[in-house]
């Protein structure tokens, strides 16, 4: 292994995840990353590219994306138009072949990192159409008869939101990791990356309130890391004292985005003897005080 992935200033990864990225690098297998929103799936690829000193090629998958788009697109309409108006040399097909992110990665002189973002947004058959290309790391441009083969096998990171089951044949060729939601100690590190000078006292209170909110039953969309970071920023700007957080949660709208969830939080807390979660130490404020912008 010539290169290894480590934690960086910008991205805090668990030791387990770091090791898995390195395994993926060494075994040259695509790595599928799954996890709750806001656990840093997409950022992982960026961090890996940074640390490894490689270029990052991102392929944002949409519901209409086809596997072919990642390899190359043959711009027929352009060529037809050119032939009509005599603009370019239409006999040179190669100028109408536009390489996609995978195509570019294969052609690159340097090893790169490819991020296939939200792979399950596309059609159910999408991953299957990439099987051969990921295995052989080459594809044929049928219009020109040329085969493009990877000079260096790229590190491929695929993120998925579990919207669709990925096909078995595809999964067999990949490594898989599920990023659990960060626990308090990892979260502390993550926050320190964003706010290195955050007061210790405030941090402790913020985390306490945040995790209590996440555990609150009846919330359909628990707040995630990015919401927590926005919230801290709001708290700092308004200069709220850490003690205040024991009594209420200001700017709740930053953390909770769904109206039903806000309502659920505002209902009088039912006393259920069995759960520590319901020892709620905060009184939720009216939503009108939660707008910050």
């Amino acid at each position: 292994m010539s290169q290894t992935f480590t934690d960086s200033q910008e991205y805090v990864a668990s030791p387990e995840l770091t090791e898995i990225v390195n395994i993926a690098l060494d075994l040259e297998k695509p790595l599928i990353i799954r996890g709750e929103p806001g656990t840093g799936k997409t950022l992982l690829a960026k961090a890996a590219a940074n640390v490894l000193g490689r270029d990052l090629l991102t392929w944002h998958v949409k519901s209409t994306t086809k596997a072919q788009d990642g390899l190359y697109v043959y711009d027929t309409v352009q060529r037809l138009n050119d032939s009509r108006f005599g603009d370019n040399d239409v006999s040179d097909i190669s100028q109408y072949i536009k390489l996609g992110p995978l195509g570019l990665a294969f052609q690159s002189e340097q090893p790169v990192v490819v991020l296939i973002d939200e792979v399950d947004k596309a059609d159910i058959e999408f991953p299957n159409d990439l099987l051969h290309e990921l295995d052989a790391m080459s594809f044929l441009v049928s219009e020109t008869g040329k085969t493009i083969t990877a000079k260096h096998r790229p590190l491929i990171i695929i993120t998925s939101n579990a919207e669709k089951e990925l096909p078995d044949a595809f999964l067999r060729r990949c490594l898989f990791h599920y990023i659990s939601f960060p626990d308090k100690s990892l979260m502390t590190e993550i926050i320190k990356v964003h706010y290195p000078d955050l007061e210790k006292n405030l941090l402790a209170q913020v985390l306490e309130a945040f995790y209590a909110l996440r555990d609150f039953e009846g919330i359909s969309k628990p707040p995630s890391t990015s919401e927590l970071i926005d919230w801290i920023s709001a708290l700092r700007k308004s200069g709220i004292a850490p003690k205040q957080l024991q009594k209420s949660i200001p700017f709740l709208g930053v953390l909770i985005k769904k109206e039903e969830d806000l309502k659920a939080l505002q209902q009088p807390v039912k006393k259920r003897g069995w759960s520590g979660v319901f020892r709620l130490f905060f009184i939720v404020e009216e939503p009108k005080s939660s707008g910050i912008s």
């Binding site: 090791e19 898995i20 599928i32 089951e165 898989f176 990791h177």
Partner: peptide
């Protein structure tokens, strides 16, 4: 522990099997 995560990352392809 490192074998645990290695084998898991290779063999398990969905968190429902964790």
């Amino acid at each position: 522990a490192s074998f645990y995560s290695l084998a898991r990352t290779i063999c398990i392809k969905h968190e429902k099997y964790y």
